[in-house]
Write a protein that binds this DNA or RNA. Structure first.
Lengths: 187, 187
DNA sequence: GAACCATACTCAGTGATATGACTATTCCTG
DNA sequence: CAGGAATAGTCATATCACTGAGTATGGTTC
């Protein structure tokens, strides 16, 4: 019952098809919720049956037809109910950290390689989020945007994603360097 | 196939019972893997059947008997195999961020309350991790400990947990203050 | 001495999540 | 005009995770 609210929250930004939603969940939304397209299509079907969103068919001639979904008042009410009940902190599950936990008893080389690769990925995400932030705030300064815009939710979650990835990158770099220094490994 | 490796990685630190493991997963391990006791007991059964850990019965007189588990060479090999294959970044799922994403269209009061509560929880976790780090490194400086200890895995993951919670706290505080300033709410 | 907490663990069931294999259309490139 | 990428989506299945309800023992507290 949780992907449901993530989908509703994203659909507040406008009409989207399942396919577009999948794109969004693959990039911007992935800071706070991850889902594969199949999950999204299934969830959209359920949400529509529950009356929380409505879909409308759009006939296209240059590509396959699609269905665009909008949040209904009932959907908004569902989100409000969701936001009103205290949530539990998320459950973190990170394979790379499991490897680091065990690294003293393993060959560090593959772990170091993964840390370095992850650092690069994280750096790329930081840049992606920076671009998204700039795009969201237009030509306003961050301070002005946050004070005056009437749609700051996506900006705030993106800010969180940026911080997280920056932090992640720093940790990966630091740990990779440390492990390299302790047990020199040829590439 | 993933909780499995988290359990193995934690059992590298010594013999633990399911109950003790549950405690560890509830605090220190929760930076990188979350699991409820029932999952752990089930996983321990599976791991033992697969020969990756061995259990020995300990008869106790002041409290119920328990079984302590140790990683076998096969278990260590399993961990090595796991560490050798590149892992995907974790899937983040955070209800509180879903709420923030939608906050422009909802009553901000409960979201602000949750952000402030979360900031307090995060601050407590930072302190908990600080205590754990101090305990792990004993009277060595961090630099010395990381250079010379032969069991730095748990320290490194704890360091990551600390950074994450610190960062989380800052974001929660900032966003709560911002939302309060935008739409003044009586407590 | 009743209630409660901590230790120690089990079982049943239900959702949620992930994987893989599909269908179908149109555009673009070589 | 063949092949691939992008759009748009469906179905089936397996596994995972989580909830809730139990069992049992001993120690502590009021």
């Amino acid at each position: 019952m949780a992907l449901r609210h993530a989908v509703l929250a994203v659909l507040l930004d406008g009409e989207y098809s399942g396919y577009q939603l999948a794109k969004i969940f693959d990039v911007s939304c992935s800071n706070f919720w991850y889902a594969v397209p199949q999950q999204l299509y299934a969830e959209l079907t359920k949400l529509e049956r529950a009356g929380l969103i409505t879909g409308r068919q759009v006939i296209q001639h240059d590509r396959p037809n699609k269905r665009l979904f909008t949040v209904t008042p009932a959907g908004l009410a569902e989100l409000a109910t969701f936001a009103a009940v205290p949530s539990k902190p998320s459950s973190i599950r990170e394979d790379l950290l499991v490897m680091v936990q065990a690294v003293d008893r393993l060959d560090p080389a593959p772990v170091i390689a993964q840390l370095e690769e992850r650092a690069v990925i994280a750096a790329a995400k930081v840049e992606l989020f920076d671009r998204m932030l700039r795009q969201l705030r237009g030509d306003l300064t961050e301070e002005m945007f946050l004070r005056e815009s009437n749609r700051i939710g996506p900006y705030l979650t993106c800010l969180r994603g940026r911080r997280f990835e920056q932090e992640n990158r720093e940790w990966c770099v630091q740990v990779a360097a440390l492990l390299r220094a302790r047990a020199p490994v040829s590439r």
